[in-house]
Amino acid sequence: MARLAMVIDTVRCVGCMDCIVACKTENQTPEGFNRDWIAYDTQGKFPTLHQEIRSERCNQCSEPPCVDCCPTGASHVHEYGGVVLVEKTMCIGCKACIASCPYDARYVHPEGYVDKCTFCIHRVEKGMDPACVSVCPTHCMHFGDLEDPLSNVSKLLASRKHHTLIPQAGTEPHVYYLT
């Protein structure tokens, strides 16, 4: 069984937003809405500053509260890779999932259903990387299977310091940030 994960190197990332643009054109998200975004996390006092730049999105959690709280089963864990998806034909737009997500990773599509990052499962199932990973000009984004110890993502997590977002929420996120 695969466990898909994204590993993002904050040392290389310049926050250029190419990941967001690529998601938009690949997935045709509506104008005014995006599935991913950049966080510029600045600490300190000028000029002694530290900044972490992160490309953020749905964390594809192993304990996804959005799935647990969905009254219709529209939010579900896909059969491959542990990816959390929304079946738009089953979604009633009640927004319970939006309220439950600690990462604010979901939005209501103008057509009435909830939308979010899919890890580009339509590409991944064809052997391609997610669109964001495939375009990144700094090569700061990595994608693969954590069940495979030889995968790029497994090796990076074994060798580099890293963290996830809001781990205390207990959601077991699968987007990792190298520092």
Binding site: V11, R12, V14, P47, L49, Q51, I53, T138, H139, C140
Partner: peptide
Amino acid sequence: VQEFADAVGNGASIIVVDPRYSIAASK
């Protein structure tokens, strides 16, 4: 920018002069 990310990733010593703490300054 691609080469800049390579230089940063390779551990090059980066010196940034700017009145503003730019993205590059953060590296």
